[in-house]
């Protein structure tokens, strides 16, 4: 699905990623590990096309890529519903929204403006997006941060659900997760 050859990236002449080589197959879940500042987020940004002045090759068979970054891309002044429906990544049916909101226990806050929500709830909103969207490749930067145990299980299930549909997932996390088929350490 995606193949990385001799990928290097430097910030102000300081090498952040050096000569990376790896491959991601369909239906594979990869856990990206590494210390703080080892370039995990940067690698995900390169794979998603946000950063493009790297050296080496990134070959991809799909352009259908979902990115979840450190900053969630949500608008404080919009309601939960608008934030989900007007998100650039939303590519599902509008009807499926309330189902998903119930699953994530956000249904009562559908019309609430986002600035009334806690950090954890915001995270959940962006994870509803992850749950709903249909993509070939999911790049998730710290999807488990700021979540309680129940939320973590929800995400693990969501990731499995996408895997069963044939999508690949790359995520970063500091904890161990038994859903991953492979670990990649930077």
């Amino acid at each position: 699905m995606i193949k990385v050859e001799n990928l290097s990236y430097s910030f102000n002449d300081f090498p952040l990623l050096e000569n990376l080589n790896f491959e991601v197959n369909p239906s594979e879940i990869i856990h990206l590990k590494g210390e703080n500042g080892s370039g995990k987020s940067t690698l995900l940004k390169i794979l998603s096309g946000i950063l493009n002045n790297f050296q080496g090759k990134v070959l991809s068979t799909t352009k259908n890529v979902f990115f979840l970054g450190h900053n969630l891309g949500l608008k404080d002044s919009l309601s939960v519903k608008d934030n989900l429906l007007l998100d650039y990544r939303f590519n599902s049916e509008v009807d499926s929204l309330s189902e998903a909101l119930k699953l994530f226990e956000l249904n009562s806050m559908k019309e609430t403006k986002l600035f009334n929500l806690s950090q954890g709830q915001r995270k959940k909103v962006s994870l509803v997006q992850l749950f709903l969207s249909k993509y070939d490749l999911f790049l998730l930067d710290e999807p488990f941060a700021n979540l309680d145990q129940k939320g973590i299980e929800l995400i693990e299930n969501t990731i499995r659900h996408h895997q069963n549909r044939g999508s690949s997932v790359i995520f970063t996390s500091h904890e161990d997760h038994n859903i991953s088929s492979r670990e990649l350490v930077l």
Binding site: G49, I50, F67, G69, G73, L74, D76, D87, Y88
Partner: peptide, 8 residues
């Protein structure tokens, strides 16, 4: 807020 990341 990260929206620009999603746009790119």
């Amino acid at each position: 807020d990260g929206s620009l990341d999603l746009v790119l």
